[in-house]
């Protein structure tokens, strides 16, 4: 046991040394953290803003004049969605069969300190899958097996609708450098954000090249009465339904007996 533990410590030390060495070999890296990793959705939840602080790390030369940019990508839990188009049939507007997207993020935000086009070539972001264009490519790749060539308007619509709902966000002013090395960014989460585990990816770009990447996580979950209602509704639907009826019955009794009659 003791030997095993020592061995584990040695391995850890070696890994740490290797990490530090790699860190120095790289020009610069980036570290960041959120002010909170846990957003509670309670009865009064009407959206919130999570702030991210970060710093450039590694061999920092104060005289260095390279421009640094940060791009923060926040990806919410994925779920299958159906995008439908209304078509004019027999006098009214009816949904068509639509296009199914297997794994669409329920939330997607790209926050940067200036417009992505000024930070690097569009192709760079496209390759990394950052930004709406990259997201669209990813989404289409997910569904091309089922979809056809005419599917593109559906994906444009998905991006457009989610953006209007505040679920897909491109904010080129959401991040700001404080001095040369520190930066802060704010991530807006509306009242309609999906619940679950969010990936937060922080990219450092220097002179149009990605030179650092850091990843952290954010959990959005329901709490209190909201959580109780939600979890019982999905996990014990029969009990939930019966409870709703009992509450209705009690409310009816209150109305009949307690509230004064005319």
């Amino acid at each position: 046991m003791a030997i095993g533990r020592t061995l584990a410590r040695l391995c850890f030390a070696a890994a740490l040394a290797a990490f530090c060495f790699a860190g120095q070999a790289r020009a610069q890296g980036v570290v960041a953290d959120l002010t909170t990793h846990d957003v509670a959705v309670e009865a009064d939840f009407s959206g919130t803003r999570v702030v991210l602080f970060g710093s450039l790390v590694g061999a920092i030369d104060p005289a260095d004049e390279t421009t640094s940019d940060v791009v923060i990508e926040v990806i919410g839990p994925t779920r299958p969605v159906q995008v439908r188009q209304k078509v004019w049939r027999t006098g009214i507007w009816i949904n068509d069969g639509g296009e199914r997207v297997e794994r669409a993020p329920g939330y997607y935000a790209v926050v940067s300190n200036r417009a992505l086009n000024d930070i690097a070539l569009p192709d760079t972001f496209h390759r990394l899958g950052i930004g709406f264009a990259g997201l669209k490519t990813d989404l289409m790749r997910e569904s091309l097996v089922f979809g056809s060539g005419d599917a593109e308007p559906y994906f444009d619509a998905l991006l457009r609708i989610q953006r209007d709902r505040g679920l897909y966000i491109e904010n080129p002013e959401g991040a700001r450098f404080v001095g040369n090395f520190l930066f802060r960014a704010s991530i807006d989460l509306g009242a309609n954000v999906p619940l679950g585990q969010y990936d937060v990816l922080i990219y450092l770009f220097q002179e149009g090249v990605m030179t650092g990447r850091h990843q952290t996580q954010l959990l959005i979950e329901k709490r209190g009465f909201e959580r109780f209602v939600y979890s019982i509704a999905y996990e014990q639907p029969l009990i939930y339904g019966i409870l709703c009826v009992i509450v209705a019955g009690l409310a009816g009794l209150v109305a009949a007996y307690i509230v004064p009659r005319r």
Binding site: R79, P80, V81, Q82, V83, R84, Q85, K86, W88, W93, N95, R100, V101, P153, Y154, A157, L158, R160, I161, Q162
Partner: peptide, 12 residues
């Protein structure tokens, strides 16, 4: 009436 937004997104 023709809706402003022809497309809709729903959970599948």
């Amino acid at each position: 009436v023709e809706p402003d937004e022809l497309f809709s997104v729903a959970d599948s």
